[in-house]
Design a protein around this nucleic acid. Structure first.
Lengths: 121, 121
DNA sequence: TCGTTAATTAACATATTAGTTAATTAACTA
DNA sequence: TAGTTAATTAACTAATATGTTAATTAACGA
């Protein structure tokens, strides 16, 4: 058995499942609602399995309403991912700043004073 | 062949690989540097494979320096994940605010992060 | 040149994932 | 009650992921 963050990332590593989450972010939906966009690509049991993966990952909670199974997005697991990402925010934002800084040196018709490769060791 | 966001999430769905990224966020490292914390759990070829997964996902770039293979973190793939997350930000932040509001009405002192199943970091 | 270190490749075992079709459960409705 | 709809379970297949050990490649340094 995996740790839960791994399970969450694993569940996110599939476009069908991410599309389901996107759908659920618009509002709760039954299994058949979630299935509809994919029934030309795969069977209903396949859909059931995808939803089960999302459930086990804690991303989705499925309840019962007569013969329907309303599903809702579960914020906690998404927040765990966001929290993990947070430790890298400075990192990827820095590179964006660097790109922006670079573009500023280039866009004005000034001579780009580029010194890129610093030899290590 | 998978879409690239799926490949990235898939690469993140492993604690060994996430630990490698954490290490690389502190600075570039050779394969053997990355391997060191794990050599009691798995073999060097296993490490090589993990790094290859990170490379294919675009999360890591490996270069050459004599017999060494310095690796560096690649911000772009991380940013892709962050961008995807962004569409859900309002969603999980809303629920956090709700929790915070709730906790303020109940226990104005502490603010525990409640979790259904134990999520290991 | 020889031995050592760094890292990869090859070949293989095993587990997990993602899908299938067929059967089943459960609740509604005419 | 019989038929229909919603969804799951069972049994199976094929592909991919993750690890192993043994062999190999490549560069350094005494």
């Amino acid at each position: 058995m995996q740790d839960s963050l791994s399970q969450t990332f694993s569940a996110l590593a599939d476009p069908t499942r991410r599309a389901m989450l996107a759908r659920l972010s618009q509002g709760d939906a039954n299994v058949s609602d979630l299935a509809k966009p994919f029934l030309n690509e795969m069977s209903l049991p396949a859909i059931t399995k995808h939803i089960q993966v999302l459930e086990r990952a804690g991303l989705v909670t499925k309840t019962r309403d007569a013969q329907y199974r309303p599903c809702k997005l579960n914020k906690d697991a998404l927040r765990d991912v966001a929290d993990w990402m947070e430790q890298y925010r400075a990192f990827w934002e820095a590179s964006f700043d660097r790109l922006e800084a670079y573009l500023k040196t280039v866009a004005p018709k000034k001579k780009p004073r580029g010194k890129k490769n610093v030899r290590k060791k």
